[in-house]
Design a protein around this nucleic acid. Structure first.
Length: 858
RNA sequence: GGGUGCUUAGCUCAGUGGUAGAGCGUCUCGUUUACACCGAGAAUGUCGGGGGUUCGAAACCCUCAGCGCCCACCA
């Protein structure tokens, strides 16, 4: 084992070798066997997305943090290096990559496209998360290794068939969201609504006695109208219900129907019913048996209306239709612009077209009910709990899920059609009869992603892994994916695994935003590249920054400066450890009996014990940010700035066996504690310090409750006050910190032992002196022998400022104590605290006043 | 339209009833033998506005204003 640390910290030097070490040791494969209770954590795949998105880095950091902690606690933790979940992001990235080579998926067939994808993945090394990217050749990039992605995996076939057999998958002609550019159906959550400027025109239908005016934002669809609907209670239109009215331009007669879906107050109270091009209208049409008239093709071009508008683009047709109606004097009113919500494709932003088409659906009602109940009755917890309502709101009002996609990339729908319109589902191991043709569509990517918690464990086979690791424990992911992925894993998990939810906790974190808190987007160019930052500052620095910013469910702003700060912290730890080891920090033998230690050693152990306890509990509660904050301040402030400084005198005097041992213990424990958030540097320092094999498998620190020692904490608090005050004095007097000053301490008995340590830190030379200046801090006094006269103005200014502060503090305390309501109702502990504050401030005032008067009359 | 969250130091954010905090930035000083990716010191806030509850409010309630996010079949 390397027992020395390099004089400077270079992340790249330690990261790559450690990956190799960890991989070789098998730390990143499923660990079998343990008498301990299984504790498993699902990790989403290390994202074969082709590009590392900062959000993935955050997911990964937090999941890995929990895994490492749990493993150190002795739980069996499962690491799933699976490669499922080829998401929409993958497709986009892959497509973009291919586009740079002049290839589009339309140019090549499905098979060729998929081949290209794998070729590209292999060539580029494929992955890119901080760990995976360094695996390089140790990952099998062959297509076979990714069959879950590419082929019709057994799990997908099995679940599809199971759902189909239970009547939960059906094919239907419905109005779905259709992207005329991507030429595919989209599910509800792939639709992005935005308020767009459109037009709102009122059109008079009919002739003579039978006339009615409807309002629309999509005038061109009137060519496909099958009816006009009014509310059954609408007095204005009672006489028209049941009559037929002339549809202009199309010159057809259509019925006027009554339906409660119509709102009387909106528009004219009369609605055109375009059954094939609007979901509401479709519903009404079904109820009233209205004809479906399709007037637009898949590209959003008018077709089949039998009018002169056929062949026009939908938006051109809109203008043309309005003009034609205007020429006939049928436009009664128009509002332009009319701001209203319009659906767009989440991938290409094209305005969506509701389109009548045959698609496959999952009947979600029973699945969603189960998924909702699992959270409602507490079997699954959502952290933070504030986000649970959002989950319920969505899952309790879910529409049936359109799962067919007209894309190239994905699992093909395992449905085959016979020559006489037979429909069969071909399950795993089955073969379609000759002459049957497979449905050309593929499944929504979330269909297979929903299987992740058990398909990765071998399901539908009853594998050992499945038995041991299902249900998993904690899913950590961003709240933005709650509906897309989490809810679907819940539904399918409960369905496929006999009502056992896939995990007991859903820990949601926020999204990463830019340094100004703005959402990152490619078009704004404010995205950050995590790889670049890892190369520049080290993986630990990026991980620590992400973890430190991760408050449950809240977004975090990420800027290069923060990462630089974390790198500085890592360097600080490195240097402190190097210094400690140079001075003999060790872990040999038992820790000395606590009672025999000096107050400085007791104090750091006390601080350590509290930090360990708090960090442990915070991490268990998924409070990553607060845990990191505590570790940061313990390491930097308590350990580096105070403990090491106060111990220097002891190190130089040689009487420090206990301190060396305590320091070794503190570092050992701190490294264990920090390992989950800074794995590389802690592993390196820990193995150097302890000679241990690996921190990955070391035990998680346990807080020593018996090390918590208020007496030492108070004592060190006094030392800190004295030191700070003398530093201030030196600073105000313009004395260089390197200049040694002859001085004498007049300290109470309990502090006397620590005068040498303080003098060392403060660069004071102890001895008998002729004092020319002094500082008084509480019951202590430090006298100096300054060669030159002190700066009276600066000194007076300092004292006067202290005096003013003390007066202010005393006043606020006094006001409280004079308040009868406060005295009567405030709890005793608070009153005591205020009394003590008053006593302290008044003695401070006395002291400072005396010093000031001495300054005036030396 | 319905939810939901936010508004605290120049910036990004912690802080769920007892004298306002952190990181970064700013200013001054400093090459003290772990560290200039450092050390020491300093400055900085009517805690969005207005009401209320309370002995006491950044925190709890009401209200107003601004911003954000999610959901949404009002043509």
């Amino acid at each position: 084992m390397d027992r020395e640390l390099a004089s400077s910290f270079v992340p790249a030097d330690i990261e790559a070798p450690l990956y190799e070490k960890w991989i070789a040791a098998g730390y990143f494969t499923a660990q079998a066997s343990s008498s301990k209770p299984p504790y498993t954590i699902v990790i989403p795949p290390p994202n074969v997305t082709g590009s590392l998105h900062i959000g993935h880095a955050l997911d990964h950091t937090l999941q890995d943090t929990l895994i490492r902690m749990k493993r150190m606690k002795g739980f069996e933790a499962l690491w799933l290096p699976g490669m499922d979940h080829a998401g929409i992001a993958t497709q986009n990235v892959v497509e973009k990559q291919l586009a740079t080579q002049g290839i589009t998926r339309h140019d090549v067939g499905r098979e060729a496209f998929v081949e290209k994808v794998w070729q590209w993945k292999r060539e580029s090394g494929g992955v890119i998360l901080d760990q995976m990217r360094r695996l390089g050749d140790s990952v099998d990039w062959s297509r076979e290794a990714f069959t879950m992605d590419a082929g019709l995996s057994t799990a997908v076939l099995t679940i599809f068939k199971k759902l189909y057999d239970q009547g939960l998958i059906y094919r239907a002609e419905r109005i779905i969201n259709w992207c005329p550019r991507c030429l595919t159906a989209l599910s509800d959550i792939e639709v992005e609504h935005s308020d767009d400027a459109g037009e709102f025109v009122q059109v008079r239908y009919g002739e003579g006695d039978i006339q009615i005016t409807v309002a629309t934002t999509r005038a061109e669809t009137m060519l496909g109208d099958g009816a006009v609907a009014v509310h059954p209670d609408d007095a204005r239109y009672q006489h028209l219900i049941g009559k037929e009215v002339l549809l202009p331009l199309a010159n057809r007669y259509i019925p006027i129907i009554a339906d409660e879906l119509v709102e009387m107050e909106f528009g004219t109270g009369a609605v055109k019913v375009t059954a094939a091009h609007d979901p509401n209208d479709f519903e009404m049409a079904m109820r009233h048996n209205i004809a479906l008239v399709v007037i637009m093709n898949e590209h959003g071009v008018m077709a089949g209306s039998g009018t002169r508008f056929d062949g026009m683009d939908r938006f051109d047709a809109r203008t043309a239709v309005v003009e034609a109606l205007r020429a006939e004097g049928r436009i009664m009113d128009e509002k332009r612009p009319y701001i209203h919500a319009v659906g767009h494709c989440s991938r290409c932003e094209t305005t969506l077209e509701p389109r009548l088409s045959k698609q496959w659906f999952v009947k979600t009602a029973p699945l969603a009910k189960a998924a909702g109940d699992a959270v409602r009755d507490g079997r699954v917890k959502i952290e933070p709990t504030e986000l649970a309502p959002r989950y319920f709101d969505w899952i309790d009002n879910m529409h049936d899920w359109c799962i067919s996609r007209q894309l190239w990339w994905g699992h093909r729908i395992p449905v085959w059609y016979g020559p006489n319109d037979e429909v069969i589902v071909v399950g795993p191991g089955e073969v379609a009869p000759a002459g049957y043709v497979q449905d050309p569509d593929v499944l929504d990517t979330w269909f297979s992603s929903a299987l992740w918690p058990f398909s990765t464990l071998g399901w539908p086979a009853q594998s050992e892994d499945l038995k041991r690791f299902y249900p998993t424990s904690v899913l950590v992911t961003g709240y933005d994916i709650l509906f897309f992925w989490v809810a679907r894993m819940m539904m399918f998990g409960l369905f496929a695994m006999d009502g056992v939810a896939p995990f007991h906790t859903i820990a949601l974190h926020g999204l990463v935003r830019d340094q100004f808190g703005k959402k990152m987007s490619k078009s704004k160019g404010n995205t950050v590249d995590p790889i670049e930052f890892m190369d520049k500052y080290g993986a630990d620095a990026l991980r620590f920054t992400l973890a430190r910013g991760a408050n449950p469910g809240k977004d975090q702003a990420l800027a290069e400066d923060w990462i630089g700060g974390s790198r500085n912290f890592a360097t600080k730890l490195w240097n402190a450890t190097r210094f400690a080891m140079m001075n003999g920090a060790n872990i040999e033998g038992d820790l000395p009996d606590f009672a025999t230690l000096n107050a400085i050693d007791k104090w750091i152990l006390s601080r350590l014990a509290q930090t360990v306890a708090e960090v442990d509990s915070l991490l268990e509660d998924y409070e990553f940010a607060r845990a990191c904050e505590l570790m940061y301040h313990f390491a930097w402030d308590d350990l580096c700035d105070w403990y090491l400084e106060l111990s220097k005198e002891r190190f130089s005097s040689g009487d420090c066996a206990d301190t060396k041992r305590v320091l070794g213990f503190v570092l050992d424990q701190l490294f264990r504690l920090m390992h989950p958030v800074m794995p590389f540097i802690t592993e390196t320092m820990w193995t150097a310090l302890t000679g241990g094999e690996s921190l990955v498998t070391a035990q998680w620190p346990v807080a020593h409750a018996d090390h918590v020692d208020k007496i030492s904490e108070n004592l060190i608090g006094e030392l800190q006050e004295i030191i700070s005050e003398v530093r201030r004095f030196r600073n105000d007097q313009g004395i260089k910190s390197s200049q040694k000053i002859p001085a004498r301490f007049l300290a109470p008995a309990h502090i006397v032992d620590y005068v040498p340590a303080m003098a060392f830190v403060l660069r004071l030379e102890l001895g008998e002196i002729t004092p020319s200046a002094n500082c008084e801090i509480g019951k202590s006094k430090v006298e100096f022998d300054l060669t030159s006269a002190i700066d009276l103005v600066a000194e007076r200014a300092r004292l006067e400022k202290d005096l003013a502060n003390a007066h202010k503090d005393m006043q606020t305390a006094q006001i409280k104590l004079d308040n009868q309501g406060f005295m009567a109702k405030a709890p005793e502990t608070v009153v005591v605290e205020i009394r003590e504050r008053l006593a302290k401030t008044s003695s401070d005032i006395e002291q400072i006043t005396a010093q000031l008067s001495k300054l005036l009359t030396p």
